[in-house]
Nucleic acid binder design. Structure first.
Length: 680
DNA sequence: TATTAGTCTCTTTTT
DNA sequence: GAGACTAATA
C-alpha cells in the first residue's frame, strides 16, 4: 500500500497492528507531541477501511468536535488516494466527542431506558443556574456563614460524578473549605437531580453518567457494544473514570479497541481526567494490551525540543520517553525578561510583525497563555496597531447575556418544562422579577401543555402589554418552521435588547450572526444540541470572526491549543503565579499538571519559541487599594540549570512610558563588577 | 414585590 | 471587575 510508505516503522506498526481475520487485540499508542499522532490514527482507520471494515461500524471518539472533523477529513483523503474513490465523511457516522456520542445514544434508546427523547441539554451555565434555584429553594442562600456559590456546588457535584468518588472524598481532597457543608450539599444534589428529571433536562455529566449506567446492564452493554467492531479513542490521557468505565463496558475483552494519548500532555485533571486511565490501560486486559510508543518528533526544531524535554524530565511519574528530531536549527528558544506586561505585549507584537515581514503569515503564529484574562493587554496593543486576531478559549460568544436570552426563548418554546430557560425568559418582561416568574412556572408545571396553559393564566400584576406579546411570540414560535423560528424570537427580543443593554448595536450584530449560524442547521433541536455540545470556540477582537482567507493572529489558552501547531509560538507570563497558577499550587499533583501545561505550550512551536517573563505583573486579587502589582519570578519550571538552552534576552522599550524616546546611555558600564570589587 | 444601590467575596483551564 | 447577597426605595 503506497500510503504506508510515508510512515516510519513505529507508525506503520501502529497502523497495521492486529491486521488479519477477527478483531485486533487492544492497543495503546503512546504518541509524543508532534509525533504524527493524528496522522497515525487516521491511517489506522483508513487501513481498516481499505481492508474491508464497515465505516458505519467504527466508533471514533475525540476530545473536541474540531478534532473529529479533522480526523475524518484525513481518513477521507487517505482512502481516496488508496482506493481511487474514498469514503465520504458521512460514512464515518460515529465520530465525535464522548458527550456528543453519549447524547446520540441516549436519544436513540431513550424510550427503552426511561428517558423522554425530547430532553434538552444544559450547558455549564444553565446547570449552575438550576443548581442556584435549588440552592435558594432549600434556603441555603441565607445561612449564617456563607454557603458555597453555585459554581462551586456544581464543580463539587461534577467532580463526584466524573471521578466516581463519594461526596466526602471529594470534599476532603478537592474542596476542603466546603467540608463542613457535607450534609447540606447532599440534600442540594438530591434536589438538583430531581429538578433535572422533572424538567426533562440533562447536563454534561448526565450524558456520561446515564450512558455508563446503561452499560452496567449486561444486556444493554452487549446490545450497544455490538453497534461497532472498532472503537478508537484519541487523547486518552484526558478521559476520566466514568469514560473509561463506558469504554470497558463497550469492549470488555478489548478486542477492536485502540486508544491513543500522551501522559505527558495530560492537562485536564481539574475536569476529573486521570492519568491512571492511560497508565493502567495495558493491565486492564488479559493478556495485557500491546503498547507502541511514537517518540520521533516531526514538528519542532532540536533546540526547542531540548528545552521542552528539559521541562518534562522533572516530572514525577510517566511513561518514560524522550522525544527526538532530526530538524536541526541554530536558533535557540528565547526567554525574554521584560519590565511589565505592557512591554511584553509591545515586544511580542513587534516580533510578530517582524516575522510577518519575513514571510511568516499571522495564521502561522500564535500567542498562548494560562488564563484567558492574561491576554488583555496584548489585545489592546493588537487593536491599537491594527493586527487582526482570533481568540480561542475563555469567555464564549454563548456566555454573553443577550445570546443566552435569545437561546432561552427558543429552549423554553421547545421544552416548557425547562425551568432555567423559562425563569430567564419571563424576567425579560418589565415588571416581572424572580418571584412572579417562579409563580408562573409553578402554575404551569402540572399542565400537560404548559404553553397553552400560559395563555389562560392571569398575568402577573405589574406586567403590562408586554406580557401578551411574550405569549404570542411563544405560541408563534411553537408553530413556526425552522429556521423561521429564530427570526421570530429575535423580532420579539429586539425591543428588550434596547431597553436592557447600553450597547444594543454590537449585541444586535451578534444575534444576527447567531441567526446566520442557525440557518445552517436542519432543525431547532439539532441546533440547540450542537450548540451546547460544540460551542463556537473563537471570539474575535472585532465583531464577527474574520473571513477564512484573511490573515489573522491566533490567541489561545494553552488548553485550547491542544493538538495544534504553529511556526512561531509566544507564551505570555511564564512566571510563578501564572504558570504554575497561584490557584494550582496546593498539591504536588496540581503542580505536576501545571508543568505539563508549560510543556504542552512549548511543544506547539515548530521553528520559533518565545517565552515572556514580565517582572512586574498585574494581579486582580490582593488587597483592595494596595499595590496592584506583584514582582514576579521566572516560572519554577525553568530552573537555573536550564537557562543555557535559551537565548536569554532583557528587553527594554525604545520608548519611555511618557512617550519620549529612550535617550541613548552615555556608555555601557558594569557596576556589578565594581560593587563586587568593593569587598575584594 | 420589583428594582436599585451598596457591600462583600472571589477571581483557571472545558465537554 | 463580576457575582452574590442585603437594605432601602418605589
Amino acid at each position: 500500500m503506497a500510503y504506508l510508505d510515508k510512515l516510519n516503522d513505529r507508525q506503520r506498526q501502529a497502523v497495521e497492528f492486529g491486521a488479519g481475520p477477527g478483531l485486533p487485540p487492544p492497543l495503546l499508542i503512546i504518541a509524543g507531541a508532534g509525533s504524527g499522532k493524528t496522522n497515525t490514527l487516521a491511517h489506522r482507520v483508513a487501513h481498516l477501511l481499505v481492508g474491508g471494515a464497515d465505516p458505519r461500524r467504527i466508533l471514533l471518539m475525540t476530545f473536541s468536535r474540531r478534532a473529529a472533523t479533522e480526523l475524518t477529513r484525513r481518513v477521507e483523503r487517505i482512502t481516496t488516494e488508496a482506493l481511487g474513490s474514498g469514503y465520504a465523511a458521512e460514512a464515518l457516522a460515529w465520530a465525535g466527542t464522548f458527550h456528543g456520542i453519549g447524547a446520540r445514544i441516549l436519544r436513540e434508546h431513550a424510550l427503552e431506558i426511561g428517558l423522554n427523547p425530547e430532553f434538552s441539554i444544559h450547558d455549564r451555565e444553565d446547570s449552575a443556574d438550576l443548581m442556584n434555584l435549588v440552592r435558594h429553594g432549600l434556603g441555603f442562600s441565607k445561612t449564617e456563614s456563607r454557603f458555597p456559590s453555585k459554581g462551586t456546588c456544581l464543580a463539587i457535584y461534577s467532580r463526584a460524578v466524573n471521578a466516581e468518588e463519594s461526596l466526602s472524598q471529594v470534599l476532603r481532597n478537592q474542596f476542603p473549605w466546603c467540608a463542613n457543608w457535607e450534609a447540606e450539599l447532599k440534600r442540594l444534589f438530591g434536589g438538583y437531580v430531581e429538578a433535572k428529571q422533572a424538567q426533562n433536562v440533562l447536563d454534561y455529566d448526565d450524558l456520561l453518567l446515564a450512558w455508563a449506567q446503561v452499560m452496567e446492564h449486561p444486556g444493554f452493554a452487549a446490545h450497544i457494544g455490538a453497534t461497532w467492531d472498532h472503537v478508537l479513542i484519541d487523547e486518552y490521557q484526558d478521559t476520566n473514570r466514568l469514560q473509561s468505565r463506558i469504554l470497558l463496558g463497550l469492549k470488555p475483552d478489548g478486542r477492536g479497541l485502540t486508544v491513543v494519548g500522551d501522559d505527558a500532555q495530560s492537562i485536564y485533571a481539574f475536569r476529573a481526567a486521570t492519568v491512571r486511565n492511560i497508565l493502567d490501560f495495558p493491565s486492564a486486559f488479559t493478556p495485557p494490551a500491546d503498547v507502541i510508543t511514537l517518540d520521533r518528533n516531526y514538528r519542532s526544531t532540536q533546540p526547542i525540543l531540548a528545552a521542552a524535554n528539559a521541562v518534562i524530565e522533572e516530572a514525577r511519574e510517566r511513561f518514560s520517553k524522550s522525544l527526538w528530531t532530526e530538524r536541526e536549527s541554530s536558533e535557540k528558544p528565547r526567554l525574554v525578561t521584560l519590565l511589565n506586561e505592557a512591554d511584553q505585549a509591545r515586544h511580542f507584537v513587534d516580533q510578530i510583525l517582524a516575522n510577518r515581514e519575513t514571510g511568516m503569515r499571522l495564521t502561522q503564529q500564535a500567542v498562548l497563555f494560562r488564563t484567558s484574562s492574561h491576554s488583555g493587554q496584548l489585545e489592546v496593543e493588537l487593536t491599537r496597531r491594527n493586527v487582526p486576531f482570533v481568540k480561542f478559549g475563555g469567555l464564549k460568544f454563548l456566555d454573553s447575556a443577550h445570546v443566552k436570552d435569545l437561546l432561552a426563548v427558543l429552549r423554553f418554546a421547545q421544552n416548557p418544562r425547562d425551568r432555567v430557560a423559562g425563569f430567564r425568559v419571563l424576567q425579560l418582561v418589565p415588571g416581572v422579577g424572580p418571584t412572579a416568574a417562579g409563580k408562573v412556572l409553578d402554575a404551569l408545571a402540572p399542565h400537560i401543555h404548559p404553553l397553552e396553559a400560559l395563555a389562560t393564566l392571569n398575568p402577573p400584576a405589574r406586567a403590562g402589554t408586554a406580557w401578551k406579546d411574550l405569549i404570542e411570540a411563544l405560541s408563534g414560535l411553537h408553530a413556526a418552521d425552522w429556521p423561521a423560528g429564530i427570526a421570530r424570537a429575535r423580532a420579539w427580543y429586539d425591543p428588550h435588547l434596547d431597553r436592557i443593554h447600553e450597547d444594543a448595536e454590537t449585541r444586535r450584530a451578534d444575534l444576527l450572526q447567531l441567526e446566520q449560524i442557525a440557518g445552517g442547521y436542519p432543525s431547532q433541536e439539532r441546533f440547540l444540541t450542537d450548540l451546547t455540545l460544540d460551542p463556537p470556540d473563537a471570539t474575535s477582537g472585532q465583531a464577527g470572526v474574520p473571513l477564512k482567507d484573511d490573515d489573522y493572529l491566533i490567541l489561545s489558552t494553552i488548553h485550547s491549543a491542544k493538538g495544534q501547531e504553529w511556526r512561531a509560538v509566544f507564551v505570555l507570563n511564564v512566571v510563578d503565579g501564572c504558570i504554575p497558577s497561584d490557584l494550582g499550587t496546593g498539591s504536588s499533583a496540581e503542580i505536576e499538571e501545571e508543568r505539563r501545561l508549560l510543556y504542552v505550550a512549548m511543544t506547539r512551536a515548530k521553528d520559533q519559541l518565545t517565552l515572556g517573563v514580565p517582572l512586574r505583573f498585574y494581579v486582580t486579587q490582593q488587597t483592595r487599594n494596595g499595590d496592584r502589582h506583584i514582582h514576579a519570578m521566572r516560572s519554577r519550571f525553568i530552573s537555573r540549570d536550564m537557562l543555557d538552552r535559551y537565548e536569554v534576552i532583557h528587553w527594554q522599550p525604545p520608548i519611555l512610558s511618557d512617550g519620549r524616546p529612550r535617550p541613548p546611555a552615555p556608555q555601557a558600564i558594569d557596576i556589578s563588577t565594581k560593587m563586587r570589587g568593593m569587598w575584594s
